[in-house]
Amino acid sequence: MLIEALLIALLAGLAGVDLFDGLTHFHRPVVLGPLVGLILGDVHTGLLVGGTLELVWMGMVPLAGAQPPNVVIGGVIGTAFAILTKAEPTVAIGVAVPFSIAVQGCITILFTAFSPMMHKCDAMAKKGNWRGIELVNYFGMAILFCFYFIVAFLPIYFGADAAGAVVKAAPQWVLDGLGVAGGMMPAIGFALLMKIMLNKNYVAYFILGFVGVTYLKLPILAIALGALAIAMIDFFNSNRAQPQAAAARNVEVEDGI
């Protein structure tokens, strides 16, 4: 178990850096889930938990710089616990969420604590010490790595057995209830996205997408491509209309926003 916990911690450390630097998005649950599954020897469960968590975390992105509940720790710990305790993927959400919220708080503290480093950087810039400034950046990433490494390692190494006992002792209706809540949870992520994007200009497109799945049973990719076609028609039409009716159109758009 020590080796597995260390490997998972290493993965969490790298993914934690990718969340801010690199941004290849291998830190999303849909990728971390199967990777954690690979380490623990159960890729299939990893895929299921990763896919489930991915939907819950869909809207949890750092919009305008605000920190959402931490997707890396949520993904890693949720998947690891689901595999180690043989719980349902939807129950794993219940385990993942408290950790992700706690880590969100820690990251905020970390970013506050890093502010004084900027004054050191000012002093380096005054001396033209560009290498020092590079080192500060490497140092920042190293701190992130260590933080995630520790936060992922401790609960998995020390907490897996305890969590397994708790899951075994819990009454069935609690597990089922967590499962039901897990099925509803994606609504929060989607609502978060809607809160930012939805205004009366876009309600029509929401309805189109909803109808496309509910009645027409189209896959997501088909709907995305159809929406892209609509967006392109809109984009090029507005380009063509621009010269003559620019003034009138602007007023119209402004009104909606």
Binding site: M194, Y202, A227
Partner: peptide, 14 residues
Amino acid sequence: SIVGMTVIGALVAS
């Protein structure tokens, strides 16, 4: 936003 909102409508249903 057009593409995004359409896809979100589809994701809610899925």
